[in-house]
Simulated assay, not measured.
Amino acid sequence: MSVRHPIISVTGSSGAGTTTVKHTFEQIFRREGLAAAWIEGDAFHRYDRAEMRQAMAEAEASGNRHFSHFGEAANLLEELEGVFAAYGRDGRGRTRHYIHDEAEAAHYGAPAGTFTPWEDFPHGTDLLFYEGLHGAVVTERVDLARHADLKIGVVPVINLEWIQKIHRDRSARGYSTEAVMDTILRRMPDYVRVICPQFTETDVNFQRVPTVDTSNPFIARWIPTPDESMVVIRFKSPRGIDFAYLTSMIQNSFMSRANSIVIPGSKLDLAMQLIMTPMVLQLVDRSRRAR
């Protein structure tokens, strides 16, 4: 953790909705006039698309059918921790961009499935924002969680997470349902060992729970809408959280536990604005006073 150069980390698995949370933070930063350095978790994958296919084939040939982007071996986690540490120390670091599709390929001038060159963060940023798979990961080799000043988990219930991933990968990436199912099965051991434990490290978790039947996510024709969902917001420490204010500001919300509030899914952006804005401003104010 760093007083002078704060780090905000949003973590969640593929298809969980971390990109939506990123957009909310973009609004907060723009409104409050804050300059952020950005890291997309995909930037710290170890392999590009072609290399990953080869690495998966080699792993499967050796008997490992669970080699995935969720695990340590497929990512540059030590390098990512080094960037977190460097930014917390002096506000410096570097990142790159993973090019997902043809639209991004046209923008960056490089093939889809490859990386852009490494680039240094801009000078004079107010904070670092990470969004990806491993923002609060703790293993025998790395401890990302200790570097982040504010850690946020985005955790839909598992069937909803799968529905979101299936629909995204089919529509945006052209994958078949069977191919997405294979990916889910391959990732499951790393999901259990690497992804899930992060949500005990996070300061705030947002978990969307559908109020419609999602019992078979592999045949679902639609993603449940926000109006068909509730969101459970869990605070690691409820100290300093004004639950009375939140429930008064968010219609039809209620407390389910001493550290949890439940809100209608359509109120997620409002809730994040109410909860995250003061947390961000507190980090920035502390940073500016320390400098």
Rank of each mutant, 00 (worst) to 15 (best):
A86M: 14
F84N: 07
G109V: 10
A106Y: 14
R141G: 04
I152S: 00
D143E: 02
G71L: 01
K165A: 09
H45Y: 13
R96L: 04
A148D: 11
M52I: 00
P122I: 09
N159C: 01
V83L: 11
L160M: 07
K165W: 02
G135C: 04
G153M: 03
E60M: 07
I166E: 09
E102W: 13
E119N: 12
L127M: 06
A148E: 06
A50D: 14
K151Y: 05
G41A: 03
H107T: 15
N64L: 03
L128R: 06
F129P: 07
Y98T: 12
P122S: 05
I158M: 15
E131P: 07
V138K: 11
H97G: 14
S68K: 05
A110F: 13
D42V: 05
L128E: 02
G153S: 06
K151V: 03
E58R: 13
N159G: 06
D149S: 14
H107V: 15
R146Q: 13
H167K: 12
G41C: 01
H100K: 15
G88A: 01
Q164M: 15
L144T: 07
A85L: 11
T95D: 11
E78S: 14
D120G: 11
M52H: 04
E104V: 13
E79G: 08
V83H: 01
V83Y: 03
Y47E: 00
V155Q: 11
H147I: 04
F67Q: 06
A73W: 05
L133Y: 00
H134F: 02
V155E: 14
R65W: 06
G41E: 01
V83G: 05
F44C: 11
M52E: 09
F70V: 11
L80V: 04
G109S: 03
G109T: 02
H147Y: 08
A86G: 14
M56V: 13
D169M: 02
E79H: 08
E51A: 14
A59C: 13
G124W: 04
D101K: 08
S68Q: 10
G91P: 04
A103P: 12
F44Q: 11
A105H: 10
H167I: 08
M56G: 00
G113N: 09
H100T: 13
E81G: 08
L144A: 05
E72H: 11
A85I: 10
N159P: 01
S68P: 10
